[in-house]
Design a protein around this nucleic acid. Structure first.
Lengths: 228, 228
DNA sequence: AGAGATTATGTTGCATGCATGAAGTCGTCA
DNA sequence: TGACGACTTCATGCATGCAACATAATCTCT
């Protein structure tokens, strides 16, 4: 097994081309490029002070991840996911996270339980003090902990791809949404955690899927963000 | 949306580099390369009569798909999935196919029902006449029909990636296994179909997951193939 | 002036060459 | 004989150059 590195989104990539691929991805996801904007190879090449060749390879990866669209002989463009794709991705998210919660419950973890417990406490604090940013970070951490806790690298990998595709959408929502409004999804998180504690993997999966479904619906029905 | 093409495994790729990427993938999955074997760029380059550059890009894609391992400054090698990875992939397969069956049941399909119905009849015939090859093909078609019937392109995409990673393993099992032995999993398929007919998406998902789990266990416990 | 054809431009697609680094090989020395 | 070290070999990593094609701009003709 080669040396790998797991990115923030949980995507495992070979470590040797991490800097470039990661930097390009960050640049595109950063929001500097509106959807549909062209991403020229030469621009990126001089931006990162490398040749076009490694840039091309990175862009192909990103195409594979669904973040950009390469039109042969024309150019590369930031891909704007359609609403239908968003729905599809959320269906997958529900399935992935449900699976993860179930696997974690079956494992009967120790370390993760403490982390999740602490997370919920801090989430309550953040919600009470109205710290939206902190709350969002904690929500992210909660889900990430469960995914990683499932102890299934392939799941982590696929989940990372998924979240990368949703990342741009999330960003739009987060910046365009109502920052002050935080709906406490902590209750649903707590339910999930209880199920995991009880080693009820069936219940944990169901609870997590309900939670993801609920949050996705709120994202999809209107444009208000639920920070989750 | 750019023009895409869906491969046999259901993986959607841009059409312009289909020939090369697909041919390289087929070559590697074809079994000519034992696991761990080096896949030199120059070899592939002269094999397909192109330069190293497009070969490199294709290999990077395959690395992304998990089929090869690129060791920097050393070479590219056919990746041998560990047993643990096989287990992880089957867990994902269970989740994917369960999701697909559920979505299909919820859709209340018409065309797919006829196809699946016919498939089961032919499966019975193939099983009765002991045509292992035909039976395996029908099993593949059954699952593929359900995946595609779920009408979720992202699911199809992720599933395709998954199956590509399992493809090599399947091949080994199929060739090394006992070709005469066919255990009729048709009964489980029939259960899944009944649930879909009844639009019981919950039951369909459960039935499919049980089925996939059962077949995976049989694959994993010993080396005998169940053709599924 | 408008429509079609033609040129011009910009970007990608690929081939090639060279530098870099990793293994393996051979030789030398203790 | 065994171990250490320089060297050879070989494959990759990347830069560069040129050709091909899509698109836009221009020109011509009616």
């Amino acid at each position: 097994m080669q040396e790998t590195f797991t990115t923030e989104q949980g995507l495992t990539v070979p470590v040797h081309d991490l800097p470039l691929l990661d930097r390009v991805r960050t640049l595109i996801l950063g929001g500097d490029f509106p959807p549909g904007a062209p991403v020229s190879e030469v621009f990126l090449a001089q931006e990162f002070d490398v040749s076009r060749t490694p840039i091309r390879e990175a862009l192909k990866q990103l195409q594979h991840e669904g973040l950009v669209e390469i039109r042969p002989k024309v150019g590369t463009f930031v891909r704007e996911p359609t609403r239908r794709e968003i729905v599809e991705l959320f269906q997958l998210k529900e399935s992935f996270e449900g699976l993860a919660a179930g696997l974690l419950a079956r494992r009967g973890p120790v370390r993760e339980l403490a982390v999740l417990e602490r997370n919920l406490e801090e989430s309550d604090e953040a919600a009470a003090s109205g710290d939206a940013e902190r709350y969002a970070a904690l929500v992210h951490e909660f889900h990430q902990t469960i995914i990683l806790g499932a102890d299934n690298n392939k799941l982590t990998e696929h989940y990372g791809r998924l979240m990368n595709q949703l990342a741009y959408h999330r960003l739009v929502l987060r910046t365009a949404g109502h920052p002050g409004r935080i709906i406490a999804s902590t209750a649903e998180h707590r339910t999930v955690l209880e199920m995991i504690k009880d080693k009820d993997h069936f219940g944990a999966e169901a609870a997590m899927r309900n939670h993801v479904y609920a949050s996705s619906r709120e994202v999809l029905t209107d444009s208000r963000t639920r920070n989750d």
